[in-house]
């Protein structure tokens, strides 16, 4: 069993408030806030599935699904 790998970011756009906490603290700069002030996974290929974005989101709006 190796390290978990990213399957997808599950983003709840209805709950996300675009605070930018997840994007700012992402160690791999995977996430961005779009023009609608919601988070998007702009560079999912760089994600190391550390889940820090999910753990720090105040709105429970981002989930890191691994395979």
């Amino acid at each position: 069993m190796g390290k978990p790998k990213l399957k997808e970011h599950k983003i709840n756009r209805r709950w996300c408030k675009g605070c930018g906490i997840c994007a700012h603290f992402c160690p791999k700069n995977v996430l961005e806030i779009d023009e609608k002030e919601k988070v998007v996974a702009a560079r999912p290929e760089d994600c190391i599935a550390c889940k820090l974005c999910e753990l720090r989101c105040p709105d429970l709006a981002i989930e890191v699904i691994t395979k």
């Binding site: 605070c19 930018g20 906490i21 720090r56 989101c57 105040p58 709105d59 429970l60």
Partner: peptide, 10 residues
């Protein structure tokens, strides 16, 4: 948006 109380909830 960004209120720390949500992170504590999490």
């Amino acid at each position: 948006p960004g209120c720390g109380h949500g992170i504590i909830l999490n």
